[in-house]
Amino acid sequence: MISLLLILISSLFFVGIIVKTKAKIAARKMPSVLQPVYDVVRLFKKGAVYSQTTSAIFKMAPLVYFASVFLAVLFIPIGSQKALLSFDGDFVFFAYLLGIGKFMMIIAAMDTGSGFEGMGANREALYSMLVEPAFFILVGSVALFTNNVSFQDLFLHLKLDTNLYYIIGIASIYVFVYIAMVENSRMPVDDPKTHLELTMVHEVMILDNSGFDLALIHIVTWLKFSIYGALISNFIISNSWAIYWQIAAFFGIQLAFSLTVGILEAFKARNKMEKNPQWIIMLSAISIVVFLTVLIITEKIILN
């Protein structure tokens, strides 16, 4: 329960901190950290406008999207705080929960019949497909490392005692940061601030959504960031720490993560569209190196 609350609280501030960091670096006047929340509240007050060409799928999609991601949050533990739901192999379920939401958004975008949205959906689908192996290989190798197959047990048994753990930890954090960026369509893959439909990925998909639907989609973005932040924090937080230390560390890591995203977005240029696939496949390559490292540690590969 605590983990769910922590993730929800941190998600409220996440995007605000990113925006604030970017504004600070660009020497602009900063909006309040809670500005995204105010925006969403305002959107909730509005009614939605639907195109005449759309069907029920389009109206359903944001709800399914939100529901699936919210369900995914329930599987995330933090430190020694248990997740609400947990069973063996739940990380596969977790990945496909995110997948269902994304799938709904993609077909909703196709449903509008707009060429631009179809293009955006196409790209989004490609990038999610490419990033999937990275996620599975990484979580799979951590599962092999700890000999557990649910998120909760897996992170509970993650021990910090070998030298090689640091490689796994650092590489996993690195890969998770960038998976989060790809999943949320942020900087190296997609620029959320761009105003040219030709170069958009995620933003162009939700061009037709408005009011209540748009608010849900924004909330999902916060949640996703927060989920990945929580996953990253699990690599660092040891469950032997006292509970208040764990909570403090969790917020510290979420803050650091959002600052990192803000700094990355401020300084990095967006990749060329054709470079994106190779850049995403690189994440899988690094996860494979992590996998090989785990094989060495667990002595599946015996070296001398």
Partner: peptide, 29 residues
């Protein structure tokens, strides 16, 4: 570059498993 990354990953996997297979005490695998 996409294929190059796949090639380098395959060669890494191959050589890791090859050195597992060698496992001779004369080589530091």
């Amino acid at each position: 570059v996409f294929f190059s990354i796949i090639v380098v990953v395959l060669s890494l996997i191959f050589s890791f498993f090859l050195s597992n297979f060698l496992n001779s005490n004369q080589i530091h695998t």
